[in-house]
Amino acid sequence: MSSSEQAPRLLSMTLNGRVRHDAVGDNILLLDYLRETCDLIGTKQGCDGGECGACTVLVDGKSRLSCITLAAECEGKSVETIEALATNGKMSALQRGFHEKLGSQCGYCTPGMIMASEALLRRNSSPSEDEIRDALGGNICRCTGYVKIIEAVQAAAEELS
């Protein structure tokens, strides 16, 4: 580990629609910033770096692995996490789909899975099954066998159309 200490710097971003300014070290990962500085524990860590998708969030509307992204790279950007999807106390179409179709069993992969699906639906509102598979290719789920995850995304796409 490097001996030199670096002082945190002021980091500004729009997080779940609100502008935030926090003192954050350059070497802090977005995942840790979200969970520890911002108390947004919905975003999960499932692996030791880039291999599972559990930590997927949106940065400027695109899916991104927060466990291998430096928080400081998000300066001035818009970051969205699972906590932002429900509006007026109601689940989003995707959340409802995952809940009602049982796209979530233990729920650990779910925030990442839903955020990756959200990124998909924002750029393609009626994806084919193959497109869903492609968009969720980086998100591992150990419970569902994925069958009901696909149904959940399809149900949400239908509700939105």
Binding site: M1, D26, L31, R35, Q45, C67, L70, A72, E75
Partner: peptide, 13 residues
Amino acid sequence: MTELLPAFSLRHP
């Protein structure tokens, strides 16, 4: 809580 990265500074040219 991930393992800490080395204490680099990040520059943005």
